[in-house]
Amino acid sequence: MLFFSFFKTFIGKTVTVELKNDVIIRGKVHSVDQYLNIKLEDIEILNIESCPQLMTLKNSFIRGSVIRYIQVYAIDVDCEMLQEAARREYKELKKVAK
């Protein structure tokens, strides 16, 4: 749930998603779900030469499992809070496992 909450804070912000087939898409996050499927708006394909057929897309739903990376702007991330949330989440996970 940590990364689901993390990406919910990016709704309305611009991110760059790199897919496992090397397509790179920049767009504004419209929504995200628990599988980290992501819907992007106002998209732009950054390496259009490798996939010209995608040029006309405006919005896209991306299945979480085909994502390799998501680049975000560092200014949108509170590192201290994120680390604390990761520690808390891990503690919860261990508690449930016992």
Binding site: L36, Y69, A74, V77
Partner: peptide
């Protein structure tokens, strides 16, 4: 180089 990056665990 990338300043802030999410990496999906399956990779």
């Amino acid at each position: 180089k990338m300043p802030m990056l999410f990496v999906r665990g399956d990779g």
